[in-house]
Design a protein around this nucleic acid. Sequence first.
RNA 1: GUGGGCGUAGCUCAAUGGCAGAGCACCUGAUUGUGGUUCAGGCGGUUGAGGGUUCGAGCCCCUUCGUCCACCCCA
Length: 444
Amino acid sequence: MSKTVTPRTPKGFRDFLPDTMLRRNFVLDAITDEFHRFGFEPIGTPILERHETLFGKYGEDAEQLIFTAQHGRSTREPLAMRYDLTVPLARVVGQYENHLSFPFKRYHIAPVFRGERPQRGRYREFWQCDADIVGVAGMSADAEIVSLMQHILSRLGFPQFVIKINHRKLLVAIGDFSGVPKEQLPDLYRSVDKFDKIGAEGVRRELTERGIAADAVSRMIDLIQAKVAGTGSLDLIVDAIGADEDNGVDELRELAALLAEAKVPPACYDFDFTMARGLGYYTGPIFETVISEPNLGSITGGGRYDNLIGMFRRQSLPTTGTSFGIERIIDLMDELNLYPGHLGGTLVQVLVTVFSQDTRAASMRIADGLRQAGVNTELYLPSRKLGRQFQYADKKGIPLVAIAGPNEVEAGTVKLRRLADGKEVATTLSGAVDAAKQLLALTP
RNA sequence: GUGGGCGUAGCUCAAUGGCAGAGCACCUGAUUGUGGUUCAGGCGGUUGAGGGUUCGAGCCCCUUCGUCCACCCCA
């Protein structure tokens, strides 16, 4: 007998047992359905990409987190595991543009891999859930993305969320106006992005330490804190730095107008100049959603990246989109208890018990009838006494138990018992499906 | 990658350096046609691993692995 291996997953990789998987699927199904309603269509891409596809897209720091993958006998084609779904999209667009019609609205739900140190809400394998629009330069596309986010988050039942909106060009203009050198803009984004976490003074300290002049930092911090309802803060910024066609403010105004037309509730979004997003490739409006109560960081992130596709194509295509952080969304839904009551630990609706070998055939007929009527039905398989079969149903959370013992078989009936309240009805075999559906529908 | 907390039964955790325990879970019975309550009994351990100090280590020291948290970065 060989020694058993300690069963465990690699660091940062997780298994999902059925009750967890049911909740994950509930969230993904809701999101997918909303994607469809907005006319987005799915794509799939391989988990492994060619090394050259991924490297050189995310910046040096991020590149160190990319998993590489190699097969022992084929070293001629260096491979890497996808780090997000955006670069694969850019590759697909470059590779299949003749087969696509633009605007190309695609969604993509799949696992991605990052070799980070795991933490709460942060794993080495996690699912991303992206919707992007390729080929539309105007704000109509960005407005649709924001509207999509609002619909999905509302549908999932989040009582209050705020989609923060900013603009990369505006951050550049503010930096410029304050006197922050262009080559330090990435530092600026990184620090400003921590505004929520470390506050104005924290950002000031970081930027000063990075060698940006103190007066430039002060001017900048004053500007980004502009906070007036609606587009009011845009006016404040323009008052301060002056009007400029290329500072993104006009686009944000247009976006606000489109969001109003799309009937996105004003309480759901907010112009926030302290939100920057770390990724380097954004070129236009940027989005991020936060939930204030249990603070787990952002649950969506996205924006416009008009140049990325140019990495895989002679000429780039304007693109905007968003990514839903479903790992965090699921954690939050657990905490806020946002799942519907019918979503228990099992999807089995009826357990058909088997009283004895002699009545097995009758139980199988009942199970078959329920299954044909679309009821999720489990036929009890081991031979154990009735009490154990009830115990099994109760422990697993199966709402209904069907009993067909000798008495019922003799009379040509079946008993249905609802475990939650003990309500029990006896029906004919042909009436079992309706009776079961009724008991399930009126579950107390 | 940097810094810190924690590793004891399947799970949650006890145990002055001195006999490794409890609750829950699981199994059996009370109860051979009815679960979730109750009662009785039972199973369950190389104290993460390796080394050291000691008459004696779950406890102290070192190493290592795992895990959680804060950074870095990000969803």
